[in-house]
Nucleic acid binder design. Structure first.
Lengths: 217, 217
DNA sequence: CTTCAATATGACTCCCGATTCACCTTTCCG
DNA sequence: CGGAAAGGTGAATCGGGAGTCATATTGAAG
């Protein structure tokens, strides 16, 4: 998981009933190649500019082969979002595993996310474009992400690590932060170190934004 | 600005040298109608699904008329983003004018943004899709927004209203929060009141997220 | 009342790209 | 080995939609 170069995407034979899951090892390999190529192509050209021919060319297969494994352009996008969603969640979950408290988890999680985005820029574009191709898949992604996140905050609340509050709202705020910070500082310009970003957010989590940090009555 | 039904978009004759700025009142009116129709059409169908014919139909003009005022589909999107950008910024600036301190400004700003998005859902979609059609215009939008925001935080820092810190990073985090909260709670589902959301964020700004809110050494 | 520039029209052209399909090649298994 | 299922090919189809253009209408100036 360190180099993140191998997008292992051959396992799940397709969530719905596509044209047909591969039945041989060769088929599985080809399908995975196409999926991988689509990730790169969508990530570079964008969903709409990318043609099926661009994907198949990148995968080194003929146009028709595409339809052996995917019903169409939209379906491969859906597949991709599901796939990439699992990847990030798994990656971040692993990075956070051995943390002592929520603050540390937030710090490590944010840093890991920024780093992941920097190394896998396609994730952002594929995901954000998916929103306008099939909103449901996009919502699923964030709702899945958010669900686990809320659970973690609930645990932290129980342990007395964070202030009681509306954790669902907090989670959407936190996801939004990461998203924008990633776009700006991991994808657009790396002119501020990830450490600086994490430190800034950490300070916000510890002390808030205002100076007169008085408890609520 | 209360009902926000009139998107006055006739003034700016076009930022660049389009096919020709309208030279008569009639022309200006028609151009504005098309722009307004494009906002609605893009906002509803999305940029790619929306056809020029959809826009002109909504505007009540012939297809060819479109090209009297805009060089093409991309250009009207650019125009739209600029236009809508001015609108939001002006609206939010007005809502924040008479605030006593930064915390209050953040609260009112967030509430105003959520409300604005609820009333003008097209803003979100047009803006986010523009990102993948012409990234520059999208960056311009957020950099313009962020610039003013950073200035406000700098003032607040000087006045001792907020903790010193990296205001640029903070601004991107704040913009990300608003964006996601708006998407989730203003556009997708209104199952949490704006008051509750604002209160949750306000608490974060005042007290942070963690319980042991100790100052840094 | 003319006249002309500005506008408006909508049928038509033209290209692009998703999808199809008839036909090969490889693999698997008795 | 034989042949059938799975996999692979790429040229051809087909529809949709952006952009064009020859023509018609408007309205303001003179």
């Amino acid at each position: 998981m360190t180099t993140a170069s191998q997008t292992n995407a051959a396992q799940a034979p397709a969530a719905s009933g596509g044209p047909g899951a591969p039945k041989t090892a060769r088929g599985a390999r080809t399908r995975a190649r196409i999926l991988k190529a689509a990730e790169h192509t969508f990530g570079t050209l964008g969903y709409h500019r990318a043609g099926i021919s661009d994907i198949t060319r990148a995968a080194g297969v003929a146009q028709g082969t595409f339809y052996t494994y995917f019903a169409g352009k939209e379906e491969i996008l859906r597949e991709l979002v599901r796939d990439m969603g699992h990847q990030v969640r798994a990656h971040l979950a692993a990075e956070i595993l051995d943390t002592d408290n929520r603050l540390e988890a937030e710090e490590r999680g944010l840093r890991a996310f920024l780093q992941y985005l920097y190394e896998n820029p396609s994730l952002y574009r594929v995901l954000q474009e998916a929103q306008f191709v099939d909103e449901a898949i996009y919502r699923d992604y964030y709702e899945a992400f958010g669900k686990g996140y809320v659970r973690m905050l609930a645990n932290a609340t129980r342990k007395g690590e964070i202030r009681p509050g509306n954790n669902e709202v907090r989670v959407w705020a936190l996801m939004g932060m990461s998203n924008f910070l990633g776009l700006r500082y991991a994808l657009w310009e790396q002119d501020v170190s990830f450490d600086e970003i994490v430190e800034t957010l950490s300070d916000l989590f510890r002390n808030g934004l205002t100076l007169d940090g008085k408890e609520k009555p």
